[in-house]
Computed example of a mutant assay.
Amino acid sequence: MFSLASWKNGTDCCQLFGITCLTGRRVTALSLLGRPGNLTTSLSGKISPSLSKLKFLDSIYLQDLKNLTGPKPFLRPDSELPRQSRPAISAQTPRNQLSGPIPDIFPGLTSLISLSFSHNKLTGKIRNSLAILAPKLRFLELGHNSLSGAIPGYLGKFQALDTQDLSWNNFTGTVPKSFANLTKIFNLDLSYNRLTDPFPVMNVKGIESLDSSHNLFNLGSIPKWVISSPIIYSMKLAKCGLKIKLDDFRPVQTYFYDYIDLSENEITGSPVQLLNRTDYLVGFYASGNKLKFDLGSLRFSKTLK
C-alpha cells in the first residue's frame, strides 16, 4: 500500500501500481498518476502538496479511490511550468471524498480536454475561471455533488463539448439560452436539480443521450430537436411536465433506443407503436401516467415475464 500522505520528493515508487515515471527511479519526472480500473486501488490517504512539484505530469486518474480525501486537488496552474512541460490533458477525480468549492486551478490548464469531479462532496457555484477551458474541453462531468446556484451562461461557449453532466446537484434557475450553441454535444445530463422553464431550443446535430428528469420543467411536449435526432439511444424525461398522447409520438429514429423514461408525466394513449419500432430496447419506464394498451399487441410479448 502506498499512501499519498507519506509522499516525498524522490520517493522510489515507480514499481507500484498506478505510478509511472518518465525516466529513472526518482519521482521528479512522474508522467502519470493512477490508471483506470483496479490498478489504482494501491493509492490512499490525503492529497499531498508535494505532488504539485511534478512538472512533467501528463494525466491524472484518481477514480474509485474510496480512501482519497482532502479539501482540494493538488494541481497548480500550469502557467507556472515551462511551456514544453505543461500538463493536464486529463484531470479526473471522480468517486473520492473531495469537499469544499471547486478548486481554482483552471487559468493555466488551457490544454484540458476532460474534467471530472463527479461523485464527490463539492459545494458552491461553478467557478467563472472554468470558462478558460472553452476552446478544447470535450468532457465536463460535475455530477453527484452538492453544487448550487445558476448554471453559468458561459458554458454555452464550450462548443467542443461531447459530454456535459451536471446531474444530482442543487442547480436552480433556467438552462442558459447559450446552450443553443452546443451543436456538437452528444450526452447531456441535467437530471435531479431544481431547474425551471424555459428549456432552450438546442441546435444539436444529433443527441445520443438526454436526461433532464426530476427538475421543475413543464415541457408540455417532447422537444423537436430530440424527436429529430438520428442517433438517440437514451431519452429520460421523467417528471418533466409532458402532456402528450403517446400514439402521436413519432421520432425520426427508434432503432437505437435502449432506454426511454417518461415516468411521472401526464401522458395518455398507447406505447405499442413506439415499442414495436425498437430493436435494442433494454428499459421502458412510464409509471405515473395514464397509458392504455394491450400487452399482447407488442411484437415481443412472448418474451415478457
Rank of each mutant, 00 (worst) to 15 (best):
D211Y: 06
P71I: 15
P94A: 13
L98H: 05
N67Q: 14
K66G: 03
K55Q: 14
Y255I: 12
K239E: 06
H119T: 06
D258A: 02
E141R: 10
N128F: 14
K157L: 14
P152T: 11
N218W: 10
Y259H: 05
F256P: 00
G220L: 08
A286W: 06
G24H: 06
K245H: 11
D211Q: 12
P176E: 02
L62V: 13
T93D: 01
G283I: 14
I260P: 04
D78H: 13
C14E: 09
D78N: 14
L33Q: 00
P251M: 05
T172A: 06
V226K: 02
P77V: 13
K157N: 14
T11P: 03
F106K: 01
N120M: 13
C21T: 07
Y257F: 15
F217L: 14
H144P: 00
S114V: 07
G10P: 01
I132T: 12
R76M: 14
N193A: 01
V27G: 00
T278H: 01
K245R: 11
G149S: 13
N170L: 10
R86K: 15
L54S: 08
G241L: 11
G288W: 07
L68Y: 00
K46N: 14
P107R: 10
L298Q: 02
A286T: 10
G37K: 05
P73R: 04
N67G: 01
G241T: 07
I132Y: 02
T110E: 03
L298C: 03
S146F: 13
T20Y: 03
F171K: 03
W7R: 05
L262P: 07
D58H: 05
S191A: 08
V175L: 07
V175I: 15
G124V: 15
K302S: 10
S42E: 09
W225A: 07
F284K: 01
T93K: 10
Y61H: 05
R26M: 08
K125S: 11
